Amino acid sequence: MSSRQHGLQAVLGPLSRAAVFTVATVKHDAAAREAVRSLCGDLAALRRTVGFRSLDGNLSCVLGIGAEAWDRWFDLPRPAMLRPMPEVRGVHHAPSTPGDLLLHLRADRMDLCFELAALVMDRLAGALSSVDEVHGFRYFDARDLLGFVDGTENPEDELAADSVLIGDEDPLFAGGTYVTVQKYVHDLAAWNAQPVEYQERVIGRTKLANVELDDQTKPTWAHNALTVIEEDGRELKIVRDNMPFGNAAAGEFGTYFIGYSRTPDVLDQMITNMFAGDPPGNYDRILDFSTALTGSTYFVPTPDLLERLAEPPAPGALEIGSLKGVPQS
């Protein structure tokens, strides 16, 4: 799978200039379930409908499904590692908040993202209990609102695919992935009052040149020290597509974190290290200036499986054996 994807379930798509992140909870009734099933089958067509109006807009769409929703809607077993994001209470608090559906829409123009989001919301009218929607924008040279470049360590090409896509460990869901999102708001006044040298120690990189600090200079509580996860001497990577968002008049300045991984264990450990500390108490000092408001985890099916999820249940139609050999993209 190429790391230059566009289209439906393009989890390894390139960085974009605009994004819409939508988290929704869905009513517990048959009509809502059928609305979601119908959307699974028609989402590819909806994306094409909007994307064809600007072929160079690079519109892509990812739909993720939460653990409790999966159990309510589908007659398939739950993907092996799908569960709600754990809450972490340490020096700072990482909340675990409700979410049945995640939409991650990306394009080089916000109007494309907005149009597709509007079409999806229209399809789900009457089925949703609550919606949180964030409009993200690319800020100068891929910086966050704290002034640092974000996403430098993203893997590329084969390493990206190996880090993100489920393999033989869960064959029914091979080619899919897991995604965790968190919405952070920043106290920019307090952050900007810090000397640049301290800000660089907090992040673990230089602010202007984006060069990683050496091990003698970087504190153990630096952000990029606590978010390195290793297993058997090998670093486990995720793909981030974070976006700044905000409302200048309201004094709201934030970062929408979104991370894709082959297993949510990696993302959970990163969040635990940040909020509780590694060792406990050695927490991520960025959290003295950034507050997590939300946190939830989803499974992202392949396009083929997403279409199969739209099919009405029938005896034996959606059992494990019936999906063996289904092409995965």
Rank of each mutant, 00 (worst) to 15 (best):
M274G: 12
D284K: 07
A222Y: 07
G13V: 02
T227A: 08
M121H: 14
D265I: 05
E319L: 02
F245P: 03
E212L: 13
R308V: 01
N210F: 07
G151I: 06
K27W: 01
T297V: 02
T22G: 00
G41D: 12
K218N: 07
K27S: 11
V23T: 15
A32L: 08
M274C: 11
E34D: 14
S54C: 12
A190N: 06
S130A: 15
D162W: 05
W221G: 01
T180E: 11
L226A: 07
H92F: 08
G167L: 09
S16Y: 00
E34C: 02
R308L: 07
A250R: 09
S16D: 04
I238A: 04
G325Y: 06
Q5A: 07
V181S: 11
E311V: 11
H6T: 11
Y256K: 10
R37H: 13
M1V: 11
G281L: 06
R123M: 12
E115P: 03
E230T: 15
S296V: 02
A225L: 03
L309P: 01
H186L: 07
S329C: 03
G167T: 09
R308M: 07
D187T: 07
L236E: 10
A31T: 13
H28T: 05
L12A: 10
Q5Y: 03
L208K: 14
A142I: 12
L63P: 05
D265E: 13
N192Q: 15
G51N: 05
P84R: 11
A174F: 04
L46A: 13
A67K: 07
A30G: 05
L146H: 01
G316A: 09
P327L: 12
L102V: 04
P280L: 06
N242P: 05
T297E: 09
D75F: 07
D144L: 04
Y178H: 12
E235G: 01
G176K: 02
E87Q: 14
S290H: 05
I229C: 04
L213G: 09
S129G: 14
A248V: 14
G64R: 03
Q216W: 10
A18T: 00
N192S: 14
R138L: 14
E87T: 11
A209F: 11
S129I: 02
M1C: 07
Y260W: 11
T294M: 06
D278R: 15
M274V: 08
L43Y: 07
R123V: 09
E115R: 14
D232L: 13
L267W: 00
S329R: 13
S3R: 01
E156N: 05
Y256H: 14
N224E: 15
M274L: 13
D214P: 12
A276P: 06
T272I: 10
A118T: 12
A189M: 05
A35K: 15
W73F: 15
P79A: 09
D100P: 01
F114I: 04
V211A: 11
E156R: 14
P79W: 08
F148Q: 10
P264I: 06
M274I: 08
P279W: 04
